[in-house]
Each structure stands twice: as C-alpha cells, then as structure tokens.
Simulated assay, not measured.
Amino acid sequence: MSLAGLFPIDKWNFKSQSILSNLPEDEQAYLCANMLEQRYSKGEIIFREGAVASGIFFIKKGKVKKYQVDHVGKEQIIYVANAGELIGYHAILADERYPDSSATLEECVIAFIPKEDFLTALERSAVLPRRLLKALSHEFAVLSNSISVFAQRSVKERLAITLIVLREKFKEETAPGTEIMINVSRSDLANMVGTGIENIVRFLTEFKLAGILVTQGKKICISDVKKLIKVSGCGNER
C-alpha cells in the first residue's frame, strides 16, 4: 500500500540515493578509480564517531544505522540508511572527524571511496556539488523535523512514526506481492524512538491487540497502516 496522500514520508527520509546516480562517465571514473567493495556482517561497525574521516561509503546492499552514544553509553539512532545511499560525506565536506558512528543492521555490501577521490570528483564536477547541496538542505529539514517530533510527540506516537518509516525502507527490498517484514531488534527500535525496551514491548503488544501489526519473532509486519498513521498523529501533514 502506498503512503501517497496518507503520510508525509519525504519529511522523514534523506535523499542521498540520487547523489551518485547517472553521473557523467568521466566523473564516475574519478569516484570509482580506487573504490573498495567490502561485505559486512550484521552488527559490524563501519566507522566510529570522532574517527579521522578517510573517505565516504556507498551502501550497495543492506541497511545501516547512523547513531551517537551518550555519556552513559546509550545509543541514539539518528537515521537508517538504505541501499543506494551515501554515508560519511558530511565529515569530508566539513574537513572534520566523523560526527557520528555507523553500523550495519543486516548483512551489507558497502563500497568505500577514498577522501581524495571524492574531493577530486567534487572539484571537477558540474553536477555533484549541486546534488550534494540539495541533499544537505533536505537532510537539515528532516533532522529539524525529527528534533521537533522528539520534543512534542509521545513515545507511542514516535514509535508509530518510526514503524511507518521503517516499513517504507524494508519495502524497497521486498518483492511485489510479498508481505513487508520489518527486521529490527527491540533494542535498536528503542534507540530510534528514544525510550526503553519495556515501552517498545508494551506498545507493540497494544498495537497487536488493536490489529495494527503482527509479529514473527522479532520481525514486525504492519497489517493496518492506516490505523498506524492515525496513531502517529501525522496523517495528511504537509
């Protein structure tokens, strides 16, 4: 089921998929000259907050969480990146260390592009700077929206929003006609919502009893997305 006209999904998703798509051949060559592709197991660290930024990462397959860790060691997941998205480029553009950490949520194939190659492509390209500026502007709007939600929405509403967004992310790699299964641990779900695992379990049980979702182990299938949108309080927002 499409969310068009029901839920403002663009307010919750970055748009970095389009940054590297269909670049001119010579610009693509600069980027790919020393590209290194690597397979990651579930739960592997890609880079850590504060590490020297040595390059950018292009997710070819799988999903990655971007997160920060507070003074007591608790994760706050900022964003879940899908296949086709770039991560790590903010630090390169700002000439700073990585501002957050990234780890795989499932088995992934990720290509590493060295900093020097990325900057060379950026200097020579007429297309790439405009795409990056557009992506960064949209990301700022998404993060501003997320901060507002954390300040104004209840835990139940934040969980509903998170499940709707995750449904769209897992939908991208689900075959047509197949049920969309959200495969995220309760711990990661709690770190996305900004609450404890006990609250996640309690509200998931409530949603199950209301006929909104079903679970298969840790996997979640949204059976009534319209009800979930109503719970989120974000229906038809513009």
Rank of each mutant, 00 (worst) to 15 (best):
G84M: 12
N82L: 04
E85H: 10
S41M: 15
R48I: 12
Y67M: 04
I92P: 11
E85L: 05
S41Q: 15
Q76G: 02
Y40Q: 13
N82Q: 12
A81C: 09
I59S: 03
Q68K: 10
V52Q: 12
A51E: 14
I56W: 02
A83F: 03
G84A: 12
D70R: 04
I78D: 04
I77Q: 02
V80G: 01
F47L: 13
V52M: 12
L86Q: 09
I78W: 02
A91I: 13
V80P: 02
G55L: 06
V69Y: 00
F47V: 04
E75F: 00
I59T: 03
I59E: 01
G43K: 08
E44I: 09
E85N: 09
V72I: 14
I59M: 04
K60T: 05
G73D: 07
I46T: 11
I46M: 10
G62Q: 05
I59G: 03
Y89L: 13
V64R: 01
F57C: 05
Y67A: 07
Y40N: 11
V72K: 10
I46Y: 06
Y67F: 08
K66P: 00
A81P: 00
K60Y: 04
G50N: 06
Y79D: 01
G43R: 11
G84V: 09
K60L: 10
Y79T: 01
I77N: 05
A53E: 06
